[in-house]
């Protein structure tokens, strides 16, 4: 998946693989820290997903455009500095625009720097491909991440509070599932979704072998 990416018909594929076939959370099981920590409400999940979208797309674009000038030996630290730049931008942007959510997300906004989905895309894709393909790849991965966060956050908020994006769904007599907005709920819902994904994959005969995942785990 890393070579012969120059053909234009691969562009759509690079985009869509991150959304579904190689979904960073549900298939690669990467980026568990924000996935479990900030999905206690759909709004937090949405903001986290958008912040990651901005950081991943921005740093993929920048890394792929300057990749020829980065010495091999110090590439990881260069990527981290580029990622950290975008994280700082989004950190202050969120603080200015949505201070309440920024406060709820707390340390998890600066922690986007160490989200292994982002560093993984730089190392595995952006450092070897054109800007166009890297941006598509980054957008695919971050939309996949956003989708996963929204699925978790939505489910946890619906069950745990009886609301979605703060809108009450079941009336005032709904009995909230307290555990769902607590940390165990994150593990439970993630585990159940992964269970569902594996069940789904096991039912459908595999069309092609899943390519070995080359992103670093963390």
């Amino acid at each position: 998946m890393l070579t012969q990416n120059s053909a234009p018909d691969n562009a759509y594929d690079e985009f869509i693989k991150g959304v579904w076939r190689e979904n960073p959370v549900f298939v690669q099981v990467l980026g568990m820290c924000p996935t479990l920590a900030v999905t206690n409400s759909a709004m937090n999940a949405l903001v986290m997903g958008l912040a990651t979208f901005f950081v991943l797309t921005g740093s993929s674009a920048l890394v792929s455009s300057v990749k020829d000038w980065i010495p091999k030996q110090v590439r990881i630290s260069c990527y981290v500095i580029i990622i950290a730049t975008f994280v700082t931008v989004i950190d202050y942007t969120l603080l200015a625009l949505v201070p309440k959510i920024h406060k709820e997300l707390g340390a998890f906004i600066p922690l986007i720097v160490v989200n292994c989905i982002i560093l993984g895309r730089q190392e595995a894709f952006a450092s070897k491909n054109t800007v166009y393909l890297s941006v598509l790849d980054a957008m695919g991965s971050s939309i996949g991440f956003l989708f996963a966060l929204l699925a978790l956050g939505g489910l946890r908020e619906i069950l745990g509070v009886g609301a979605l994006f703060g809108v009450n769904l079941f009336g005032e007599h709904y009995e909230p599932w307290v555990i769902m907005v607590l940390p165990p709920g994150g593990f439970l819902v993630l585990g159940l979704i992964l269970l569902f994904f594996n069940w789904f994959k096991a039912r459908k005969p595999e069309k092609s072998l899943n390519p070995a995942l080359e992103t670093p785990h963390g």
Binding site: E175, W177, V178, I179, M180, L182, P184
Partner: peptide, 10 residues
């Protein structure tokens, strides 16, 4: 344990 965590009052 799941029920106790989920519905502590009931």
């Amino acid at each position: 344990a799941f029920l106790l965590g989920n519905f502590p009052i009931a």
